[in-house]
């Protein structure tokens, strides 16, 4: 079996009394495309958020390349409030901020697109390269690192070309049509040089043709950048087409796991999704 890239170990996320993700365990291996699906409000984005450091899980741990990157147990008030199924509490507490996690090589996009709205397309991508800046503050601020700066710009042009965004590079990001904004978000995430890419509903708001193109594009991107991809998506055709494995969440709990074929024939999934098969055929 190939190398394990991401592992969630009995993760629970509770907000106040509400358990958003309950005892979720999963693993993703190198070069896989793994999808996380489930009805609205099942806790998919929450899972993304504690992998990327936006939240800390209430209990459980996350490993990246077999290294422990996030770990927590119920603390303070949460000790009494804790409602999760798994009452086996982690011992160690490890927390990281989103920027530290990005530096490890995990990049993400957002469900409701979070571009740097008033910056140009070009600057959106260029900015994402800041964290790899080698020059120290003074030589950067005084523009003494011309060589590096030029390299960054060239890299940006290259990324934009791949996403078919080169023509609009001087446009303001928020003026782009929806589909292009999604592509720009992916380009920006790639600029951080990730090894694991998290895509939160990349096809949301796209028309069927754009969605088809996106499927090809995700696969191509994975190959070109040697990536592992973790995906949240509602478009079943897309998910079934490109995923190697699928995890299904319902009300925060993992109800199924398997290959696309297995998932399509899983009774529990069908029950949770009532009518999803129909969608698959229609699309």
């Amino acid at each position: 079996m190939t190398k394990e890239v991401l592992r969630l170990d009995h993760c629970t996320m509770q907000f106040g009394g509400v358990v958003a993700v309950d005892d979720l365990s999963m693993d993703i291996h190198e070069h896989e495309i793994v999808a996380l699906i489930g009805p609205n409000g099942a806790g998919k984005t929450t899972a993304f958020n504690f992998v990327t450091g936006v939240y800390e899980p209430t209990n459980g741990a996350v490993y990246f390349n077999e290294e422990l990157i996030v770990s927590n147990r119920p603390q303070g008030k949460m000790k009494k409030l804790y409602n999760g199924t798994n009452r086996d509490f982690r011992k160690e507490v490890v927390s990281r901020t989103p920027d530290q996690i990005t530096k490890l090589g995990i990049a993400r996009t957002f469900q409701n697109i979070r571009l740097f709205k008033n910056l140009t397309v070009f600057d959106n991508v260029l900015t994402a390269m800041h964290m790899h800046l080698k020059a120290n503050f003074f030589s950067s601020a005084l523009h003494l690192n011309q060589h590096e700066e030029r390299a960054m710009r060239e890299k940006t042009v290259e990324l934009l070309r791949m996403q078919d965004l080169l023509d609009v590079r001087n446009e303001i990001a928020s003026s782009l049509p929806y589909g292009q904004q999604r592509h720009l978000e992916i380009a920006r995430a790639l600029a951080t040089k990730p090894t694991l890419l998290l895509l939160d509903e990349p096809a949301a708001g796209m028309n069927p043709q754009e969605t088809d193109e996106l499927a090809d594009f995700i696969v191509k991107t994975k190959e070109t950048f040697d990536l592992t991809i973790f995906l949240i998506e509602h478009h079943m055709t897309l998910v079934m087409d490109i995923s190697d494995r699928i995890y299904v969440l319902d009300f925060g709990k993992r109800i199924a796991h398997g290959t696309p074929d297995e998932i399509q024939n899983n009774d529990e999934v069908i029950k949770a999704y009532l009518g999803v098969e129909l969608d698959v055929e229609n699309q």
Partner: peptide, 27 residues
């Protein structure tokens, strides 16, 4: 010069969207 440097771009990213800036590895 500072505003036009890579640091200046990081500043603008923070202005635009703190969550996104952080997700791009900007402390």
């Amino acid at each position: 010069l500072l505003i036009r440097s890579s640091y200046g771009r990081a500043f603008k990213a923070i202005r635009e969207d703190e969550t996104a800036a952080e997700a791009m590895g900007i402390n």
